[in-house]
Amino acid sequence: ENVVSAPMPGKVLRVLVRVGDRVRVGQGLLVLEAMKMENEIPSPRDGVVKRILVKEGEIVDTGQPLIELG
């Protein structure tokens, strides 16, 4: 699984990683606000951040690609 998608609609509050960062399974990639709750979106696997597909403040839909892992 190379693309991390939004599990719910919401607003991207914070991106916690940068392109080139090594991440571990379960590590927070970004914080999504949904229904006034902050939800940290975890990495599904170990890898390297290849691309960040959203910006802070952006509104996303369920299933929208957020981050690509390499």
Rank of each mutant, 00 (worst) to 15 (best):
E1M: 00
E1C: 01
N2F: 02
V3N: 14
V4D: 04
S5G: 12
S5Y: 03
A6S: 06
P7N: 06
M8D: 10
M8S: 15
P9V: 09
P9S: 09
P9C: 01
G10T: 15
K11N: 08
K11C: 01
V12K: 00
V12E: 00
V12M: 05
L13K: 13
R14F: 07
R14Q: 06
V15Y: 04
V15A: 13
L16G: 11
L16T: 08
L16M: 05
V17A: 13
V17D: 06
V17E: 11
V17P: 11
R18N: 07
G20Y: 02
R22W: 06
R22H: 04
V23Q: 11
R24T: 10
R24I: 04
G26W: 11
G26V: 12
G26R: 07
Q27P: 09
L29E: 00
L29N: 04
L29K: 00
L30E: 02
L30M: 12
V31G: 05
L32W: 12
E33L: 07
A34Y: 07
M35A: 03
K36M: 04
M37V: 08
E38M: 07
N39D: 07
E40M: 10
I41D: 00
P42D: 05
P42K: 04
S43A: 11
S43G: 07
R45L: 15
R45V: 15
D46V: 03
D46L: 03
D46A: 03
D46M: 04
G47I: 02
G47K: 01
V48S: 06
V48W: 03
V48E: 14
V48T: 03
V49R: 00
V49A: 07
K50A: 15
K50L: 04
K50R: 07
R51K: 03
I52M: 07
I52K: 06
L53E: 15
K55V: 14
E56M: 03
G57R: 11
G57Q: 10
G57Y: 12
G57P: 04
E58A: 14
E58I: 10
I59P: 10
I59F: 10
I59K: 09
V60A: 12
V60D: 00
V60N: 03
T62A: 06
G63C: 01
Q64E: 05
Q64H: 14
Q64G: 15
Q64V: 11
L66S: 05
I67T: 12
L69T: 12
